[in-house]
Amino acid sequence: GATAVSEWTEYKTADGKTYYYNNRTLESTWEKPQELK
Rank of each mutant, 00 (worst) to 15 (best):
W8Y: 02
L36S: 06
V5T: 13
V5K: 07
L26W: 09
K32Y: 06
K32H: 04
P33M: 02
A14F: 05
G16L: 02
K12V: 14
T13V: 03
P33R: 01
A2I: 13
T25M: 00
S28K: 14
K37S: 15
D15K: 04
L26F: 15
Q34R: 08
N23E: 10
Y20A: 00
S6H: 10
L36P: 04
L26I: 02
E27D: 04
K32V: 09
N22E: 01
W8P: 00
K17H: 09
Y20W: 15
E31D: 11
W8N: 00
W8T: 00
N22V: 00
W8R: 00
V5D: 14
N22I: 00
K17N: 06
E7F: 06
E10I: 12
A2H: 13
S6V: 10
D15E: 09
N23Q: 08
E31T: 10
Q34T: 11
E27H: 04
G1I: 14
L26N: 15
E31Y: 08
G1Y: 11
E10P: 06
D15T: 08
T13W: 03
D15Q: 07
K32R: 10
A2E: 12
N23F: 08
K12H: 10
W8F: 02
L36D: 08
T25R: 01
K37E: 14
K12E: 07
R24N: 15
T3C: 14
N23A: 07
Y20V: 00
K37Q: 14
K17T: 08
L26K: 15
E31K: 05
E27S: 05
T9S: 12
W8G: 00
T25V: 01
E7P: 05
G1D: 13
Q34D: 15
Y20S: 00
T29Y: 07
G1A: 14
E31I: 11
K12Q: 11
D15L: 04
E35A: 11
Y20N: 00
V5G: 12
G1K: 04
A2D: 12
E7K: 03
T18K: 07
S28W: 15
Y21R: 05
D15I: 03
A14Y: 04
P33Q: 02
W8E: 00
E27K: 06
K32D: 04
A14R: 08
Y21D: 03
T29R: 09
T18R: 04
T3D: 14
T29M: 06
T9M: 12
E27P: 00
A14W: 09
K12D: 03
T29K: 07
R24A: 15
T25K: 01
K12N: 06
L36H: 10
L36N: 07
K37H: 13
Q34Y: 10
T25Q: 01
K17A: 07
V5N: 11
T9N: 08
T29S: 10
N22Q: 00
K37P: 08
L26S: 14
Y20F: 06
V5F: 13
R24I: 15
V5L: 13
K12M: 12
T13N: 08
E10T: 09
L26A: 13
E7H: 07
R24Y: 15
S6M: 09
Y21G: 02
P33K: 01
T13E: 03
N22M: 00
Q34K: 09
T29F: 08
E7R: 02
R24F: 15
S28H: 12
Q34P: 14
L26Y: 14
T29H: 07
V5I: 14
E31H: 08
Y21C: 06
T9H: 11
G16M: 02
N23G: 06
T3S: 12
T29A: 06
E7A: 07
S28M: 15
K17W: 04
T29C: 03
V5C: 15
A4E: 12
P33F: 02
N23K: 08
S6N: 11
P33G: 02
T18Y: 09
T13K: 03
Y21L: 11
Q34E: 15
A14G: 08
P33T: 02
A4Y: 07
P33D: 01
D15V: 03
A14V: 11
K12T: 12
E7I: 06
S6Q: 11
S28L: 15
T29E: 03
T3W: 10
E27T: 06
L26R: 09
Q34A: 15
G1L: 14
E7M: 05
L26Q: 15
S6A: 11
D15N: 08
K17S: 06
E35T: 06
Q34S: 13
E27I: 07
S28A: 12
K37V: 14
A14L: 11
E10W: 05
T9K: 10
E10G: 02
G16A: 02
N22D: 03
K17Q: 09
T9V: 15
T9I: 12
Y20I: 00
T13F: 04
T18V: 10
E7T: 06
S6D: 12
K37D: 14
E35D: 10
K17R: 14
E10Y: 04
E31V: 10
P33E: 02
T29I: 08
N23M: 07
E7L: 05
S6E: 11
K32T: 06
P33L: 03
A14I: 11
N22H: 01
R24Q: 15
K32G: 03
E7V: 07
S28G: 12
L36I: 08
T3E: 13
Y21Q: 08
G1E: 12
K37R: 10
L36E: 05
T9A: 10
E7N: 05
T29W: 04
G16W: 01
L26H: 15
R24S: 14
A4S: 14
L36A: 04
T18G: 02
P33A: 01
T3F: 10
S6W: 10
E10N: 02
A4W: 14
Q34F: 10
K32P: 07
T18H: 05
A2Q: 14
G16K: 01
T3Y: 06
T13H: 04
Q34I: 11
V5A: 14
N22S: 03
A4H: 12
N22P: 01
Q34W: 12
E35R: 03
R24H: 15
T29Q: 11
N22F: 00
R24V: 15
T3L: 12
K32W: 04
K32N: 04
K17E: 09
A2S: 14
K32Q: 08
E10L: 05
Y20D: 01
G16I: 00
E7D: 12
S28F: 15
K32A: 06
K12G: 03
N22T: 00
E10S: 05
K32S: 04
A2W: 12
T25G: 01
N22W: 00
Y20P: 01
T13D: 13
T29D: 01
L36W: 09
T9W: 09
E35H: 06
G16P: 00
N23S: 09
E35Y: 06
T25D: 03
N22G: 00
K37W: 10
T3K: 03
A14N: 09
T25W: 02
T13P: 01
T18A: 07
S28Q: 14
E10Q: 08
V5E: 12
E27A: 05
N22Y: 01
Q34M: 11
Q34L: 12
E35M: 04
